[in-house]
Design a protein around this nucleic acid. Structure first.
Lengths: 309, 309
DNA sequence: GGTGGCGATACTTTGCGAATATGGACGGAG
DNA sequence: CTCCGTCCATATTCGCAAAGTATCGCCACC
């Protein structure tokens, strides 16, 4: 049984007339007669009553037609669904990211993407950079935003583009002596109790700090350790000490704190967006397109990496 | 798009390999490649990723396959449903009947039919014989059980077979003088107050009574009138008089009453089963088959009327 | 009894699906 | 690095079945 048989039977039921149904189907009448006869032979049931008044479905025909309608609807829906999925209008995007990415690039990107692709299910997984990279390689994520480009097994099959670079920034309470200063020097920092973040990603940050502080890195041993940038800012606001974190912190400024540049300016690992090189998923493409339009410089980097899309 | 495309895509997804899927489908590999390619061209979406590790559906492919599965299930169900309907295993049977038919032939027939064809929806309409006949002609009923063969416009297109003949029976209370008698004579009846039924069907019955009573039919004018046979029996049990009704009443005998034959025996109109001559519905055929098996003599009458089925 | 409408049948044509043969790309083994 | 094997795509041929044309048969209606 082919879809053709269903279409013909439905047309015949609709027009109640072999000739007119055939005309509507764009074929001649004899083929329609034959196809309907074939269908009746295959189902083993007479589906239509041919009377002088017209052609009417039998009880068996009614039962058949009801199913036939649904079958054809499913087929049409299959085409539509496939097309929508191919355009990236539906589907799923699994995004791994480090918490601090929520400060700067993600809000704009996710907001826009959610608005433009409301039928794409966004699965957001906050995780450390190393875990994101591994999940990406394992196919458990579609995109990742990490601190520094992923390294390690399988990373060579990932495409990575920087989506923002950052430098160390100090944050103090309004009441702190440094409040109001444009910048603080390393020497000034050495004399303060410091507040730094600790987490799976922090070795990279700690390396930057150590470079900055030089042989006085020992000062870090006495530093207050916070789980994330919000805690750093909260502790700084309490006057516990001088918070040190990425300049992205400024995006989440809260009353009662003051940001200073750190001199010399100390680069932190870039925020990097990665995905599997072989991933041709349209949802990913749509996401990258949104990123491209949201952050033009990222678009240029993507073009260099993939060739102009 | 034809059902073939769906079957091929599903097989390909299942085997993840063009060659093996083709073998499972009983075709060679190139046609499968071509059909899948055609399908992808028609849907405008790449449905499968061909890798060295195997062939896997894309997101669009997954969406398509889900619908394809349901479409094919509907098609299979269409065949099954049509077949079941053609065998009379499903569907609807609209039966019109007079209330007194519930005494004798209907309980056995309906019980058996309901057991054997539990998927057929039985629509039971108690109505007077004349209304049944009209509804049958109008196509509003499939079968009718009436008192006497239907007459009137369109009745010539009905097939009617007697399903039980009846004669006038008297019913009295146990305390009545006639109680214990095998029969009562017309003369005895003339001296009693009578209880008879009245309804749209009763002109036929009344005619029988009038014939019986001869010139004394005037006695009927003083008779008690009941709506149905159960009321006749109930009134008789109260000693109100002598009830007169069809011998079928005996099937619904209740304590406290006594039945007597009436002499001379007086025939009442036959109980007749009718249906449209041109009705080839399998549900009707199944019903007639049940009737045939329940009442053998009716089967013989049906065979005479329709030719041995 | 003639006529016209409608579906079925007979026969021819054609288009498409399937088979065979071949090509081309990639991966693994020597 | 080359060779070979695997796997999918392409090209060509073949055959069937679907579509077209012509016609028949049937019944209704005039």
């Amino acid at each position: 049984m082919e879809a053709r048989h269903l279409r013909y039977a439905l047309a015949l039921a609709e027009y109640g007339h072999f000739g007119r149904a055939a005309r509507a189907l764009g074929i001649a009448q004899p083929p329609l007669s034959k196809q309907v006869a074939d269908l009746e032979r295959e189902t083993g049931a007479r589906l239509f009553d041919r009377t002088r008044q017209g052609v009417f479905p039998t009880a068996a025909g009614e039962a058949f037609l009801a199913r036939a309608r649904r079958a054809l609807e499913e087929m049409a829906a299959a085409k539509v669904d496939a097309d929508r999925a191919a355009r990236g209008e539906t589907g799923r995007l699994r995004l791994g990211f480090i918490a601090s990415a929520l400060l700067d690039p993600l809000p704009d990107v996710l907001g826009r993407f959610g608005r433009e692709r409301s039928d794409v299910r966004l699965e957001l997984h906050e995780m450390a950079s190393g875990r994101s990279a591994a999940a990406l390689v394992a196919g458990e994520l579609d995109v990742a935003v990490t601190l520094g480009a992923p390294r390690g097994a399988g990373a060579e099959h990932l495409v990575s583009v920087p989506v923002g670079h950052d430098h160390l920034t100090a944050v103090v309470a309004d009441a702190h002596p440094y409040s109001g200063q444009v910048s603080v020097s390393v020497d000034q920092l050495r004399r303060q109790s410091l507040i730094v973040a600790a987490g799976e990603d922090e070795p990279a940050v700690a390396a930057g700090l150590r470079t900055l502080l030089g042989e006085d890195a020992a000062a870090l041993h006495g530093a207050t350790v916070a789980r994330d940038v919000h805690t750093i800012m909260g502790l700084a606001a309490c006057g516990v000490g001088v918070g040190l974190g990425p300049s992205r912190m400024r995006s989440a400024a809260r009353p009662g704190i003051w940001f200073c540049r750190v001199t010399p300016e100390t680069a932190l690992p870039d925020l990097v967006l990665s995905f599997a090189e072989r991933d041709r998923s349209p949802v990913l493409a749509a996401f990258l397109d949104t990123v491209r339009r949201t952050c033009p410089d990222v678009g240029a980097a993507l073009d260099r990496r993939l060739g102009p899309a």
